[in-house]
Structures are given as C-alpha cells and as structure tokens.
Design a protein around this nucleic acid. Structure first.
Lengths: 252, 252
DNA sequence: CTCTTTTGTTAGATATATCTAACTTTAAGC
DNA sequence: GCTTAAAGTTAGATATATCTAACAAAAGAG
C-alpha cells in the first residue's frame, strides 16, 4: 500500500505550476494555480489533495501550499524535461515560442531522464563541435525557409577551418580561460577546471558542474551574488565566491 | 453536432494498430488489435464503435474492420509522426530501439504537422550539409559515450573538405545523376528532376516528390515493381515505370 | 451437424480528470 | 468589527479509457 507510483501527467502539470508560482511569486494559491493551468479552482483542490497524499506538497484545506523536499526535486525534474524540449524546439528546430511551449508541455511527461540527457548532450555537441555551432543551426533555419538553399559551402568550409584553427590555442593558452564569475548573462562556457576541494567540490560535481560540461549564465544579481546558471538542463544558483574558482572556456 | 473533433490519443493508437495490421496481415480482428495494444478485447470493441462513429473505419458488430479513405489518411499521418520521432530518436539521438518506439508512441499524439516537418527537414539537413552527414552523427554518439571526446578535429576537417570538394562536380557532371529506378533498397537520394508531365507530375508533387526532397528506397519487389520509398516521412509505393523518369542524386 | 473452442459483445465497475453549482472560510473595505 | 467580496471547498455530474465477468456468435473438429 501507499506505493510510490509514478505521477500522472496531469499531476506533474500541477506540481510544475506550483513550482513556478512559488519561485516567481513566492506564493501558490489555489486561484493562481487554476489561472496558470486554465482549469477551475475545484480541480486544483482535488489535485492538491492528491499531491499532498504523495508527500510532494504540504497542504491542508485553506492552508498555504509549499513544496516538500521530494516535491521540489520532482518538480525540478519535470521542469528540466520541459525546458530541454522547449529549448530544442526553439533553438534547433526554429519552432515559434508558443508552439514550442505547448508541445513541450504535453511531451514532457513521457520523456525519460536518459532521453532528456541525450537532448541536452546533442545541443551541447552542436555548440561544441567545430563542424557545427550556431552558424550551422542558422543555415538549417534558412534551409527550412528557402526549401533548397544549397548555400555557400565554400564560405562555410572556411568558417569551420577557422574554428578548428583556433581550437588548439584554446587548449594551451591559459588566457582564453576565465573564472565563471567573470561571465556575463547569456554567455555560454565549457567547464575546464574546478578549483575547489572537499564537500563543496563534491556538491557541485553532483549538480552536474563537471569538466567538459557546458553551462550558460542566466542571471546575475546587481553585485554578482547569486549567479544563476543553467547546466545540463538544470538551473543552479551559486554564490559569487563559489564561481570564482570554477575555470571556464567561453564558447563562441 | 457531429463536429469533426480531434481524435484522442487513445483512438489514434487504435487507428494506428488497425492500419499496421491491415497492411501487414491483411486483417485487423478485434483480438489482433487487443494483442497489439495490450488491452482487453472489450476495450477494442468500444474503440471500434468510436472510430466508426467518426467515419474512420467501416465496422459493424461481428463484422470485418476496414479503413475508410479518411481513416487511411488519418492513420498515415499518425504513422508519419510516429516514424519521424522514432527515426530521430534512433538515428540522431542514438536511443535504443525499444525506448525510441515507446516514447514515439506516447509523443506522436501531440506533434503538429509543422513540427513533424521540421524534424524531417532537420534530419535531411544533417544528411545533406557537407559539414555534418552520418559521420558527424557518429561523432556525437561517441561524444555521448566517452563524455568528453574532443576528438580528431583535423581529420574531421579533411572529411568536410573532401565532401565540399566533391560537391560542385555533382552539380555539373550528369553521370552522378541516375534514375530513381536504379537505386537499391536502403539508398538515399535527393530528387533532382522530375521528367513527368500532366496529372502524374501533379500527383507525385503533391505526395512530396519535389526537387530537393530527400528520399530513401525502402523495398523493391523482385522485378522492381512496385518500389516502396519513404519521403518526408511518408511511405509511397510507385510503379517501376513511374520511377524511371525521376532523376536523383545518390547521397553519401 | 453437433460440440467445443475461439472470437466478439455487452453490461457494469473503477480510475482519472475535468466541470458546475452550492456552500464555507478568509480577507478587505469602510 | 461588521459586511461584502474573494478565495477555497465540497458534492455531484460528465467524459474517457480501462477492466472483469457473463453472455452470444462464428469457426473448427470430429
């Protein structure tokens, strides 16, 4: 009894909505959730009971809704699947934001962790491989529009050549490396060295900050603390102090 | 009333199963469908009634099940979405066949025509662009396995160079073109010229056989008639006579 | 041509996820 | 602090998609 059975897609949606509301508005009232998901309040009440029964949220009638630790973790996974699909649809397939959002919302429930990782790795690889990169992705978008833009392959080759020419220097010259703390929001980078020891090192490794991983700085508070980054599909918040000792190589 | 409302995911599954059974076994009995979808026969009966009500199948109690024209067309769309996702998962993301099949099965119901096209175009582009191609996809698969195989970029560059060097000759030398009829099963090609006139020209253009489209020969009957091809995610069956006047450029 | 097995149907139950409508609690206005 | 408005809950209805169990039709075996 009380088997930890998998969440239904619908309940995952409610959990995700609560997660977003709590992080963005600091409160997740029944009405907010109802508006967010475009359902009636009565449906939300039912869902909250179900989520509480599964120990994903703290909830009592008329009470405040908060996520349990398990709920937080579960919601993060759902969000990660969602964001991964959405990012792939928008940045790679060039689908418009609304359709990407809607489709990701429906597909997220059936994407395994393994496949989510594959999507993330694929986008990383497109970024990292000198043969591709953002300019290649753009060529694909043009191909879609013009239907048969065989394009300027010679010019393309030169771009690839140049990227490859620059490659070894990146590996030897330390100048091209910099601390994570010196990146600007929107910049992508590959983790080169983690100059931390002990528990903290272990903790950030567990969060996916490992050598070779590709990350992006999402936000930085006015004084640079905290720094929000996205890595392997997860959103992380690091203190500025912690980012100073992570060496990265800026991409592109 | 009797609005042509969208099929539910479940009914799409039944329709898809019927389509496959009819094409593979020439019959789609209640039991076959039940076994195929791993549900009880009573569930199938209910579903058949629903599909018949929507004019997608011909069905009467204890009678034979066949697809209506609308049903055939609808099923083809579902299959196309399914196959597209599955192909992307297997050939690009390198997901194992079973998981690709399962995930495609659940995701297919929420993929729009537009996004299906994008997936197909993306796979086409990977094939066509000299910067990528199958060798690039394989590099990605290695990258996934070894986690950080920065690999032999110089060698890679030479491959790209060679592909681009060969490119112009393809465009001028007629020798590299051949009739679709001379392809072997498994070979991929890009449509270069359709030497047909009138109704048939119009018909095959409608089916997606247009200049620049990438197709693959799936099967060829002993005497070469009919030829089954896959193009833009659709499966087509052409008579040998019809394939003689379609000029293609073999890929890879 | 009957008997048995297989196949197909029906009826009724269950689970999920919604809704509407009525009711209750909490919060806000003055 | 009372009154009203907003927010939240409950109960009961509906729709989908399943199931089990009992029954009916068709097919196969002798």
């Amino acid at each position: 009894m009380t088997t930890i059975k998998a969440l239904t897609g619908s309940l995952e949606d409610y959990l995700e909505a609560i997660y977003h509301l709590l992080h963005q508005e600091n409160k997740a009232r029944v009405k907010d959730v109802a508006d967010h998901l475009q359902v009636k309040k009565s449906s939300v009440t039912v869902a909250l009971r179900a989520l509480a029964k599964q120990k994903l949220i703290n909830y009592a009638p008329y009470g405040e809704v908060t996520l349990t630790l398990l709920g937080e973790k579960t919601a993060e996974d759902v969000v990660r699947r969602h964001e991964t699909l959405k990012e792939f649809f928008i940045t790679v397939l060039d689908v418009d934001a609304k359709q990407a959002e809607d489709t990701a919302c429906k597909m997220e429930h059936v994407l395994s962790k393994e496949m989510t990782d594959k999507f993330i790795q694929f986008m990383e690889f497109i970024d990292i491989c000198p043969r591709t990169g953002q300019d290649w992705v753009e060529k694909f978008h043009n191909y879609c529009g013009e239907k048969h833009a065989s394009g300027d392959c010679k010019g393309c080759l030169n771009e690839v050549k140049e990227k490859i020419r620059l490659l070894p220097s990146v590996k030897t010259k330390e100048e091209t490396l910099c601390a994570l703390s010196s990146l600007k929001p929107g910049e992508k980078a590959e983790v080169v060295k983690i100059q931390h020891k002990g528990t903290f090192r272990k903790r950030i490794l567990e969060m996916g900050v490992t050598t070779g991983a590709v990350l992006m700085v999402e936000r930085m508070a006015p004084l640079g603390d905290p720094v929000d980054i996205k890595i392997r599909g997860y959103h992380l918040s690091l203190r500025k102090e912690e980012t100073k000792n992570i060496l990265v190589k800026i991409l592109r």
